[in-house]
């Protein structure tokens, strides 16, 4: 098994990494780039905990893809959402609506939620349901998460107009 040099852009920072053939993108994000926000769940594609966003802002599962496949590509993980010490609108919405319990799956849920609003800025019920299929939270459930995603645009607006996070 050989090692290869891979250039990967994670959250805007470019990393030159030495990656072996059998490492998945998840292994590389957690062990080589050392960003532990992306979690290892079922590793078979049913839980959505390892979800990240690709360059187009779509949700993909980092556990089901070879890291070597991503040479030269750009990805966003949960750590890349916060900018200049301010949380992303979706993260604020999750806090506001209490869409978190134990928090283990939250990075994956938020990245899936981001992908939903990237594709549909004010998503309908069906679009939210479709985007959250394949995301398993065993404690919060989906109700609070769906509320947060529905109201995410409110928080985006606040950031643009510069007012505070809470009324």
């Amino acid at each position: 098994m050989a090692k290869h040099l891979v250039t990967l852009t994670v959250n805007g920072d470019t990393y030159d990494l030495v990656v072996s053939d059998n490492q998945t993108l998840l292994d590389v994000i957690r062990d080589e780039v050392n960003l532990k926000g992306t979690k290892r769940g079922c590793t078979t594609g049913s839980c959505g905990v390892c979800c990240i966003n690709n360059a187009k802002g779509e949700a993909v599962l980092s556990c089901l893809t070879h890291a070597l496949e991503w040479d030269g590509e750009e990805i966003t993980t949960i750590e890349g959402l916060e900018a200049d010490g301010e949380l992303d609108a979706m993260q604020k919405a999750f806090i506001e609506y209490g869409a978190v319990q134990c928090g283990f799956c939250t990075p994956g849920v938020i990245m899936s939620a981001r992908a939903i609003v990237n594709a549909h800025p004010e998503p309908t019920e069906e679009q939210i349901n479709a985007g959250l299929a394949g995301v398993n939270c065993r404690c919060t459930g989906q109700i609070k998460v769906k509320e947060a995603i529905r109201e995410d645009h409110r928080f985006r607006h606040k950031r643009e107009t510069g007012s505070g996070t809470q009324d």
Binding site: M1, D21, N22, T24, C42, T43
Partner: peptide
């Protein structure tokens, strides 16, 4: 069909050709 899933952390050894 997900009873008893003790999944290996790393993929089995293989070489990868793009």
């Amino acid at each position: 069909p997900s009873r008893g899933v003790f999944i290996a952390m790393l993929l089995p050894d293989h070489s990868y050709v793009k």
